[in-house]
């Protein structure tokens, strides 16, 4: 497993933090709910982490926790996507 040194990670934190702030800052109120749901989907990427953790789990306890983790993360990703898509599907303009 390649690990980031402290400062590389800190730079990523900092830059990603600004990106998140900037991307959202001009969003109209009408999209607040879908956007919250969309960002909820995005942190569903925790799924790949849960898979990695379960992948190198040893013994029943680790495996059980890993299993729960993967199932929960999959729920986050899939549920977040479906709900967001359903909402955004309905937004349309009067011009067609």
């Amino acid at each position: 497993m390649d690990v980031f040194t402290g400062f590389t990670a800190l730079y990523i934190f900092m830059l990603a933090g600004f990106v998140g702030y900037e991307v959202i800052s001009k969003v109209p109120v009408i999209l607040h709910t879908p956007l919250m749901s969309g960002s909820n989907f995005v942190h569903g990427i925790v799924l790949v982490g849960a898979m990695v953790a379960m992948g190198h789990a040893e013994g029943t306890l680790e495996l059980t926790i890993g299993f729960i983790g993967v199932a929960l993360a999959a729920g986050n990703a899939v549920g977040g996507y479906v709900v967001t898509e359903r909402m955004l599907d309905m937004f349309k303009s009067s011009k067609g």
Binding site: I12, F13, G20, S25, L35, S39
Partner: peptide
């Protein structure tokens, strides 16, 4: 790290 932080800051603003 990136997805989590982006959501963290965007979510705070929201």
């Amino acid at each position: 790290i990136i997805a989590g932080t982006v959501v963290g800051s965007a979510g705070t603003l929201l």
